[in-house]
Write a protein that binds this DNA or RNA. Structure first.
Length: 456
RNA sequence: GGAGACGUGGCCGAGAGGCUGAAGGCGGCGGUUUGCUAAACCGUUAUAGGGUUGUAAAGCCCUAUCGAGGGUUCGAAUCCCUCCGUCUCCGCCA
């Protein structure tokens, strides 16, 4: 969420930031909305001021037993009140018009985010390890070929239960996914200083607004509706529920399924004033994530790369403005460490301004090597959001000796995507006989199993 | 799911249609006194928005806010409704 006052101070800088994302200038239009809003507020406040003053005079007139004066004043207030609803409506409409626009504009890129339009302009900043070597004659398989051949990965049965973009893992492969999550959480909590969180995965509108999934990315999300009177046949299970009221945030019976634990963990500090001596806060959680993948039709339709439901270990930091940039590097290194210990080849790229997500000021993607696809695939994305989300959440901090509060800075990163890590381990540790070696770092979590073989 | 109680500033807590942006206490900040510390005493201490003066720091005026949103009223922390949240008892449940 952008600050209309700083936009007022420097509209050119705002438009320049949007231009770096490949977007049209918006400042002039927003400032016009802001002027309209201020005019509407002034008109309303003028009416309120007179009403309040007259009402006090009525009290005084009644006290000195002057009914004539009181009645005259009542008539005046009555007239003012006639006009008030229109003024109130105009004022809140003007505010809403501005907020609607501001809430749907992405964050301004940091000065050191690379220039560029799309993924082709991203900048590789480092690379670790190298691709695994296979015998010349051996063509590495993709993870779903391996998993299905092992009898431990079943997309067909999952489709019977839930449709496309779901999977059933079995036996040692199910355990491998569990092992990966445990390993990552243990690493981040015991060595990287993150506090483990087990958050709700169902959240309300405000939380989704806070991290900016709402209002713009509504269509990418799943909702959970509590159906109170479920007796009109199965069709009603998916019937559109009626929220009704004018208040935007009043539903208790509808939730959103989190698309990432970032939503839950970042919103833990919403509407709070934090002591800056306690920053940065570092949280990690391994949760299920739910994404509608709207607009991804036809992409990654096979396999586990792009599912409606997947597991991810997420990292979130809450910092002061001064700490944010360094924390971003640190967080990215924490995510990279996961891949290093798993012995996976990866590269880290800085996303260009045109390719970054909505809330980000600067983003590093970590891409892991997948031999079956013969290419790098995103497995983690670490972003600094500045005060963009903090404004939406009203999350502030205060220095020990300061009077004023200021917005915190928020960061989030995958540390890392568990489903994709499973894919990476399978493809990188496959052997010609179709079995999969278990990386050293995971063996303790696998009860000592060092190889995953075909189920009998 | 049923029944009931409650939600007031950083915290505790009064207030039950106008004199209340809100008593009192704690805490914070500034000061006086004081070998030091402590104590005592005095003062001060919400947030957001709009307007205005000023280069600025800041000041002044106004509006809104007593969980949130509506309503009644000339006037609402106070009365009514809805929602959110907390607590108690019962029921159900992993």
């Amino acid at each position: 969420m952008h600050d209309i006052r700083s936009l007022r101070d420097d509209p050119a800088a705002f438009d320049a930031g949007l231009a770096r994302r490949g977007l049209e200038p918006r400042a002039a239009e927003l400032l016009a909305l802001d002027d309209a809003r201020k005019a509407a507020i002034a008109a309303l406040q003028q009416a309120q001021e007179r009403r309040n003053a007259a009402s006090k005079e009525i009290g005084a007139a009644v006290a000195r037993k002057d009914p004539g004066a009181a009645d005259a004043l009542k008539a005046e207030v009555g007239a003012i009140k006639q006009a008030m609803p229109a003024l109130e409506a105009a004022s809140s409409a003007a505010q809403a018009a501005l907020d609607l626009e501001l809430a749907a504009i992405p964050n301004i890129p940091a000065t050191d985010a690379p220039e560029g339009r799309d993924e082709n302009d991203n900048v590789e900043v480092r690379r670790h390890g190298e691709p695994p070597r296979f015998a010349n004659s051996f063509k590495p398989k993709e993870h779903f070929e391996l998993g299905e051949a092992l009898g431990l990965m079943d997309f067909e049965t999952a489709a019977k239960l839930s449709g496309a973009r779901f999977v059933i893992l079995k036996g040692a492969l199910a355990r491998l996914e569990r092992a990966l999550m445990q390993f990552m959480l243990d690493l981040h909590t015991t060595e990287h200083g993150y506090t483990e969180i087990n958050p709700p995965v169902l959240v309300r509108d405000e939380a989704m607004f806070g991290t900016a999934q709402l209002p713009k990315f509504r269509g990418d999300q799943f909702r959970a509706i509590r159906q109170l009177d479920y007796n009109e046949g199965f069709g009603s299970a998916v019937a559109e529920s009626n929220t009704g009221g004018a208040q935007p945030f009043q539903s208790t019976k509808e939730f959103w399924l989190i698309p990432t634990a970032e939503v839950a963990m970042t919103n833990m500090v919403r509407e709070q004033i934090l002591d800056e001596r306690k920053l940065p806060l570092r949280f990690t959680a391994g949760t299920l994530c739910f994404r509608a993948e709207a607009g991804a039709a036809g992409r990654d339709t096979r396999g586990m790369i792009r599912q409606h439901q997947f597991e991810k270990v997420e990292l979130v930091s809450i910092t002061t403005p001064e700490q944010a940039a360094e924390e971003h590097e640190r967080m990215t290194a924490c995510a990279e460490e996961v891949l290093k210990r798993l012995g996976l080849h990866f590269r880290t790229v800085a996303l260009c301004a045109g390719d970054m997500g909505f809330s980000a000021r600067k983003t590093y993607d970590i891409e892991v090597w997948l031999p079956g696809q013969n290419r790098f695939r995103e497995i983690s994305s670490c972003s600094v959001c500045g005060d963009f989300q903090a404004r939406r959440m009203n999350a502030r901090s205060k220095a020990a000796d300061a009077k004023a509060t200021r917005f915190v800075h928020t960061l989030n990163g995958s540390g890392v995507a568990v489903g994709r890590a499973l894919v990476a381990v399978m493809e990188n540790y496959q052997t010609p006989d179709g079995s999969i070696e278990v990386p050293e770092a995971l063996r303790a979590y696998m009860g000592g199993i060092d190889r995953i073989v075909k189920a009998n």
